[in-house]
């Protein structure tokens, strides 16, 4: 479903990803954990081509793009079509401040797919209902709490009917009180069969929601395996050291 092979990415002289292999089967949920600067977010952004890989290949569904640094990048239109197949949720929400909540959710279908507004609206409303925010359709993002903003952002990504959802530290910018409501939505999605890749510092959440966990450090996947095993009984010393900071998987959010 999602397959990353030999993925490399460098920013200037900094090697951020040093050959990553990762597979997420259809309906699977993989959590990426690891210290800051380990390349988790960059890996997620490369899956969605927000950062362009230098080498390797990325497959989402039946479409695969290969990168080797020398070849020209695919044209803008093709990159955009590829990105449309993956939904992404950001740490900073990134809602469009000049649009109402419902227009945010409709923006993908209307702008990208050219769906008529009166067709997109009921679908957007049902998505807002699904994240518990049907009553906020006409509001502006600025009037929402962080947790509400993030739930709108999830609905906006879902409106594109993506084949995979990518969560980039979706709860790291939230007030601890508001983390739960967002995690609940992500959990429902993953349990409902949505293919999911999530970067998180919530170890308990990763263990509960993900089928598999990949521990990254310094641009490589150090250890990958069933979620419970990696988090509760890691094989690699580096994983053990990292998880030691979390006291065996507490649920409070860690510093990003």
């Amino acid at each position: 479903m999602v397959a990353v092979r030999g993925l490399r990415k460098r920013f200037g002289r900094l090697d951020v990803l040093k050959g990553i292999d990762l597979r997420v089967p259809r309906g699977g949920a993989v959590a990426l954990i690891g210290p800051s600067g380990s390349g988790k977010s960059t890996l997620l952004r490369c899956i969605n081509l927000l950062d362009t890989p230098d080498a390797g290949s990325v497959r989402v569904g039946d479409r695969r793009l290969d990168f080797d640094g020398r070849r020209r990048l695919p044209p803008d239109r093709e990159m955009a079509a590829f990105r449309a197949r993956a939904g992404m949720v950001f740490q900073g929400f990134n809602l469009f401040p000049h649009m109402s909540v419902i227009d945010n959710v409709m923006s993908g279908p209307v702008v990208v797919k050219g769906v008529k507004r009166d067709v997109a609206r009921p679908m957007a409303l049902s998505l807002l209902d699904r994240v518990g925010l049907a009553g906020k359709a006409g509001d502006h993002p600025a009037s929402l709490s962080g947790g509400q903003k993030q739930r709108v952002a999830i609905a906006r990504a879902l409106a594109m009917e993506p084949e995979v959802m990518l969560f980039d530290e979706a709860t790291s910018a939230l007030d601890p009180k508001l983390v739960g409501e967002v995690l609940a939505v992500i959990r429902d999605l993953a349990r409902g069969g949505m293919t999911t890749v999530l970067v998180t510092h919530e170890m308990a959440f990763a263990r509960d929601v993900a089928d598999r966990v990949a521990f990254m450090r310094d641009g490589v996947v150090v250890e990958e395996g069933p979620a419970r095993q990696v988090i509760e009984d890691p094989r690699e010393p580096a994983t053990r050291t990292f998880l030691g900071h979390f006291h065996g998987g507490r649920s409070a959010p860690a510093a990003p």
């Binding site: 197949r85 469009f96 952002a153 906006r156």
Partner: peptide, 27 residues
């Protein structure tokens, strides 16, 4: 316009032109 706005538009699958017209220029 914040970089996150560009990210959000691109992540939805907008081409450069659509991103400019619907997200960046209005702001």
């Amino acid at each position: 316009v914040e970089p996150g706005q560009w990210d959000a538009g691109r992540a939805l699958g907008m081409t450069r032109a659509k991103l400019m017209r619907s997200v960046v220029l209005p702001q």
